[in-house]
Design a protein around this nucleic acid. Structure first.
Length: 192
DNA sequence: ATGCAGATTGACT
DNA sequence: GTCAATCTGCATA
């Protein structure tokens, strides 16, 4: 029997084969793990946003398949990373049920757990509260770039997800930084 | 302390 | 042409 710390249980593929909105809610409290060589960086997911398909004008997949959003149409449980604002990356988890051809959950916030010193270095700042409290901040802290496009998060690798903590209250609100589809309350948060 | 303008780049319509 | 997140610096009260 391995020691308890060595047992890493990832989240099964079936978890991601459900309505994108449901997966977004259920991703709250899960752990995101990033391994770079011997180093491990991890955090608890505290904020997510669901982006669906042709019913969702704010989604990258709204107008169909392109080379950028390709991952949203491919296997669930993989990473969709895109470049934004000329200097940042955003990290999404592909998730959808049979009714949709595409869908992904944007991870907007984490609570830092392991590797906080590495995150500080990656971000060039010292204040823990500002390390991963934004979609482009967390990709910087975990060094997620286009290189991680399509990485399988359901398998233990350089980047994956596993079960985390019990969630208390979940707050639903409008999604941030978009112009269309604002009536949908598909932004989910927890406070830890 | 709070808040707002400016800068930055690539994908898509 | 439009649209995305974050940091910085400068103004305000």
């Amino acid at each position: 029997m391995e020691s308890k710390d060595e047992i890493v249980k990832t989240i099964p593929r079936t978890f991601y084969e459900r309505d994108t909105v449901k997966v977004a809610r259920d991703l709250l409290g899960k752990k995101l793990i990033r391994t770079i060589g011997k180093q491990t960086i991890s955090g608890i997911i505290t904020e997510t946003e669901a982006y669906r398909y042709s019913d969702d004008p704010a989604s990258h997949a709204y107008r169909g398949l392109t080379s950028r959003n390709r991952a949203m149409f491919e296997q669930v449980g993989k990473a969709y990373v895109y470049f934004t604002y000329g200097m940042y990356f955003c990290f999404n988890v592909v998730a959808r049920n049979q009714n949709f051809a595409a869908g992904a959950v944007l991870i907007r916030g984490l609570k830092p757990e392991k590797g906080i010193d590495i995150m500080k270095k990656n971000r060039g700042i010292d204040k823990i509260a500002n390390l991963t409290n934004g979609p482009a901040k967390l990709t910087q802290a975990l060094r997620i770039t286009k290189k991680q496009y399509g990485v399988d998060l359901a398998k233990k690798s350089e980047l994956f997800l596993m079960d985390g903590i019990d969630r208390k209250k979940i707050f639903a609100s409008k999604r941030i930084g978009i112009k269309n589809g604002l009536h949908k309350l598909w932004n989910f948060k927890i406070s830890i």
